[in-house]
């Protein structure tokens, strides 16, 4: 098998694993040390993470409040503009319905027809 040939030229893995096992020492103590060390690291970092998360919540809450205020201000401004627009549309409609506008409109149409006859 070619697969067996792949071993050629590389260090024997079993020997390396045995060496690592020997170097690491007795497993029970190692496990207890690792666990207590990592528990302490994990707890310390978890507390920092909570602090960071809290700071982010406070910051985001402030931003949310600011954004909401901006939204309210924009909505108010939009309402004012909508009212103004409605007023302007009503004025425009009144203008179109006036007697003067209709006479002027008729005048321009007659003028256009006469120009066409020339």
């Amino acid at each position: 098998m070619i697969a067996d040939d792949f071993d050629a030229g590389v260090a024997p893995r079993q020997a390396i694993v045995a060496k690592r096992r020997k170097a690491t020492g007795a497993p029970p103590d190692g496990i207890a040390d690792t666990a207590s060390l990592m528990d302490a690291l994990s707890l310390e970092q978890a507390l920092k993470d909570v602090d960071i998360a809290n700071a982010r919540v406070l910051d985001l809450t402030q931003r949310l409040i600011a954004a909401q205020q901006q939204t309210i201000d924009l909505q108010r401004a939009m309402s004012r503009l909508e009212t103004k627009l409605a007023e302007q549309l009503a004025r425009y409609q009144n203008l179109r319905n006036s007697r003067a506008y209709r006479i002027a409109n008729r005048y321009w149409r007659i003028l256009a027809v006469l120009r066409g006859l020339e």
């Binding site: 170097a23 690491t24 190692g30 496990i31 060390l37 690291l41 970092q45 978890a46």
Partner: peptide, 29 residues
């Protein structure tokens, strides 16, 4: 234990970033 590598199980699930952070912290400390 058989392979001679250290093992740590978090008491609760942290998610990948915080689990990775344990490795980074351990290396620094």
């Amino acid at each position: 234990s058989e392979l001679g590598v250290e093992y740590y199980r978090s008491p609760r699930n942290l998610g990948v970033p915080r689990n990775v952070n344990l490795g980074l912290l351990r290396a620094v400390r």
